[in-house]
């Protein structure tokens, strides 16, 4: 063991807290190293001195009145707060309440789903049909020319027949648009959802 290693263990050894193999190795070193022995003596003396000072220092004590006050305060304030008496219900009441709650939750969920479900397209008020005057072939994008410039704008035409305005109370949640080619009779349906995002018709 080196002196450096010995000194790192010295503080523990001075108080008798070094044990086992480490202690034996350290003691071997101490036998042949005078400097470490001197250092060890200093440690021992300083610990002894601190202990002596602590022993001579008469321990502080409470006066009788202070002690009495302290104990009374501890008993008065230290009492754990009383728990509120909980309402005691029989087991069947809890079970019934739980079942009722479950039924309410399930029923509520079912009805809410029905209310919020998508309405059939047939029930919707008639939308605006757009009839293209000329059916262009598949749109070919020409760089530099916007599609609106190359093709005439579609003209909105009301459907034949009297238009029935939708009742005011109903809120239209889905909107459909139909494009009809006069030449080929091809129909294209566009369906928009609530947020006016395009949804492809799967039919």
């Amino acid at each position: 063991m080196t002196c450096r290693a010995s000194r790192s263990r010295m503080a523990l050894a001075a108080g008798g807290d070094l044990t086992g193999r480490a202690k034996r190795r350290w003691e071997k070193h101490l036998v042949r190293c005078a400097a470490c022995r001197a250092e060890f003596t200093l440690y021992q003396r300083s610990i002894e001195l601190a202990r002596d000072l602590a022993r001579q220092d008469k321990a502080a004590d409470w006066s009788e009145a202070e002690w009495r006050r302290t104990i009374n305060r501890a008993v008065a304030q230290g009492a754990p707060p009383r728990r509120r008496t909980a309402v005691r219900l029989p087991g069947w009441a809890w079970a019934g309440a739980s079942a009722l709650l479950a039924v309410l939750i399930l029923g509520g969920t079912f009805f809410l789903k029905r209310e919020r479900g998508p309405r059939a397209i047939a029930e919707l008020p008639p939308g605006i049909d757009v009839v293209l005057p000329e059916t262009p072939p598949a749109a070919v994008s020409v760089p530099g020319i916007s599609p609106s410039a190359s093709h005439p704008r579609p003209r909105a035409v009301r459907r034949s027949g009297p238009s029935v305005p939708a009742p005011r109370s109903q809120v239209q949640s889905v909107m459909a648009m139909t494009f009809v080619s006069q030449e080929t009779g091809l129909k294209i349906y566009w369906v928009f959802n609530d947020s006016f995002a395009y949804e492809e018709d799967k039919k």
Partner: peptide, 12 residues
Amino acid sequence: LSRARTKIKEEI
């Protein structure tokens, strides 16, 4: 404890 004893020794 080791640190404390070393410091106490130095202080004493």
